Simulated assay, not measured.
Amino acid sequence: MIYGIGTDICDIRRIRASLDRHGERFAAKVLSDGEMANWKSRSARWPERGVRYLATRFSAKEAFSKAIGLGMRMPMTWRLCEIGKLPSGQPVIVLHGELKKWFEAKNLSAHITVTDESEYAASFCVVETRAPLPVQTSPNP
């Protein structure tokens, strides 16, 4: 059953302007430690690729925060929500700390997609309530 749906579109120029104004501090506010390492690596090779990476993560976290109905308030924080990827390249949401505990206690699962084009990054997130695990009973003798 669908718990919530969230979408976000982000102007990449706005992310670039924030980076110009605040430098790495802005990225450190939005990205988890793992994402930060990836952002630095991409930015070193091709700065524009780093900006797009940050914009897609920003957008994905906004969409997720809307889908869970919290916005950016506890336990939802930028750094406790990470956008990872499977070996296939499919993006996945990886949660940490209190946000992970909250999400698991509600028995939720999430699906995320991200995309970017010349001036915009966009994301769409669907959060579902997982079916409860069946109760196992021991067979009667």
Rank of each mutant, 00 (worst) to 15 (best):
R45F: 05
Y120L: 14
Y53K: 02
A110R: 12
T77G: 12
D20K: 11
L80A: 13
G84C: 10
I5L: 10
M36H: 14
R49Q: 07
L99H: 09
L31P: 09
A105G: 04
H111F: 15
F64S: 06
L70F: 15
E117A: 14
D8F: 04
L86P: 10
K29Y: 10
Q136F: 06
I2P: 11
S41M: 04
R130W: 06
K100L: 09
V126S: 05
R79E: 12
S32R: 03
A122M: 09
V114A: 04
R25T: 10
P75D: 03
E98Q: 15
F64V: 02
G71P: 15
N107R: 15
S59P: 06
S109A: 14
I112C: 13
G89V: 03
L99W: 05
E119P: 01
S41E: 11
K106F: 01
E48C: 00
G84A: 15
C81N: 03
E98N: 11
F26P: 05
R57M: 00
T7D: 12
L19C: 14
A60G: 14
G97Y: 11
M72Y: 13
S18E: 13
E48P: 07
G71A: 07
D11R: 01
R49W: 00
R25L: 04
R21V: 06
M36T: 05
M74T: 10
T129C: 13
V30K: 15
W102K: 04
R14M: 04
D20M: 02
D116R: 07
C81Q: 12
E128D: 13
R73Q: 07
G4M: 01
L108C: 00
K66M: 02
L86H: 06
R14D: 03
G34P: 09
D33K: 04
G34R: 12
R79Q: 11
L95C: 09
A121L: 07
T7V: 15
E119A: 11
R25G: 00
G4N: 08
R49A: 11
T129Y: 02
T129G: 00
C125Y: 03
G23Y: 03
T137E: 13
E62Q: 14
C81D: 10
P47Y: 03
K101W: 04
E128T: 00
P139M: 02
R25P: 01
W102E: 02
G23Q: 00
R13F: 07
K29D: 08
E82D: 15
W39F: 15
N107Q: 11
M74A: 13
W78T: 10
Q90M: 04
I68Q: 14
G34S: 08
M1W: 08
Y3L: 01
L70A: 13
W39M: 02
S18W: 06
R45I: 00
F64P: 03
T115W: 03
K101G: 01
I12K: 07
F58K: 08
R21F: 01
A17D: 15
R57C: 02
W78N: 01
L99M: 09
D8K: 01
A37Q: 13
S88L: 11
V126N: 03
K106Y: 12
G23V: 07
D20V: 05
G6M: 04
I93N: 01
A28N: 03
S32Y: 05
E119H: 12
I2Q: 09
S32D: 01
L108I: 05
S41A: 14
G97L: 00
E104S: 09
T7Q: 02
S109K: 14
D33H: 10
G71N: 11
M36Y: 14
F103H: 12
K100H: 00
V127A: 05
N38Y: 08
L95D: 12
A28D: 13
